[in-house]
Design a protein around this nucleic acid. Structure first.
Lengths: 202, 202
DNA sequence: CGACTTCTGCATCGACCGATACAGAAATCG
DNA sequence: CGATTTCTGTATCGGTCGATGCAGAAGTCG
């Protein structure tokens, strides 16, 4: 058993990978995949293009890792919301989490998963498809959670979990667009509250 | 009074401006403002860059005119919806119009006003701000229509027209994002139907 | 130490970006 | 007709795009 901590051979990295990725995520969040140039990104990350390519591969890989970080950071409210005891609690937590994350002061407004690459040129198709999968995966998780609520008797037996999940995620994506348009946090939270007032959709 | 039709002096245009603009709109719709290159656009329009600049000014002006055409074409369901006799009819028509327009076969999926430029680099800020204003203007028109419904007694006197308008447009924008993610027309229409089942929001 | 491995800074690559200069073609004018 | 005006095709502009080559710096090895 080696007790002595040995670093890897060779010159060590002169920057913190996590912090650089965080900065890159913020740039992608604000400007989108194609709107964020390598110069923008490396400037914010505080490193050169060479170091970026050595550490992250290329722009698309950097985006992929930035999206993972976004999922586990600003968008972590989703997994927490899915653990709420009731379906209504889940829906409420998803929408309020969306509102808070998409309107946080000193952060870009909107959602990286929505505005990161809703459309793209040919060269950005990879990023666009990645976000399509990200959004659809989120909807699927919510649907599975609601299915469980139906099975557990938390939701009426005739409830369509897919429809409910589509409703909640549609609201969440719409809230993200509104936030990107500058709509205030309070107004969006009121909208989210009103949207769940007749849960589970009569 | 001149009865004889006289064309303008100089060589006449060798292409149809309206048709070229229609083609440009479709390219912007599919790829977004920054994702659509001049080469993409002029190829689809069937003209050279010189002719495009002579006829439309520059890329941003072309986008502005393409958005106007989109508003009066694919997005014309909004003004028609606002003329429905009841507030519920307005909301229903807006959402079903959004579903149909954002999932039309042989057209780009999604909404140009949403995915045209949700984010942008510095050079695309003009287009992004234009779309922000376009979306907020749409929401304002719906709010004014709902305010009229309150004044006319069509909606209960305590109804908040702004909240209702925000709810409907949030759903519409969310539907546009879902459509861009490949969600089917039928599923989105079911979502829209369910969203209005407890109108006007209890 | 010197050998080896890895990271960094600088310069630069070919491709594409939006936008133009210029000359000639195609129309209307007197 | 010739003069004038406008549009079109080609060729190209400087700038930026994402991505690399290369030499040297900065570490760990024996």
């Amino acid at each position: 058993m080696r007790t002595k901590q040995r670093g890897p051979i060779g010159r060590p990295r002169g920057f913190d990978t996590d912090e650089a990725l965080e900065r890159a995520m913020l740039v992608f969040w604000e400007h989108g995949y194609e709107g964020a140039s390598l110069a923008n990104l490396t400037d914010a990350m505080g490193i050169s293009t060479t170091s970026m390519y050595a550490a992250f591969g290329n722009k698309e890989e950097l985006f992929r890792k930035a999206l993972e970080r976004y999922t586990e950071g600003p968008s972590a409210y989703l997994v927490r919301a899915l653990e709420e005891p009731t379906a209504l609690g889940v829906a409420t937590a998803i929408l309020s989490g969306t509102v808070r994350t998409t309107t946080r002061p000193a952060h870009p407004h909107g959602c990286l998963g929505v505005q990161g690459a809703l459309t793209a040129s040919d060269s950005g198709r990879g990023a666009r498809d990645l976000l399509v999968a990200w959004r659809n995966d989120g909807c699927s998780r919510v649907r599975e959670r609601f299915q469980r609520a139906v099975d557990d008797g938390d939701l009426p037996p005739r409830t369509d979990p897919g429809l409910l999940a589509r409703y909640v995620t549609t609201l969440a994506f719409g809230i993200a667009v509104q936030a990107a348009s500058g709509v205030s946090r309070d107004e969006l939270q009121e909208t989210a509250d009103a949207a769940l007032r007749n849960w589970p959709l009569s």
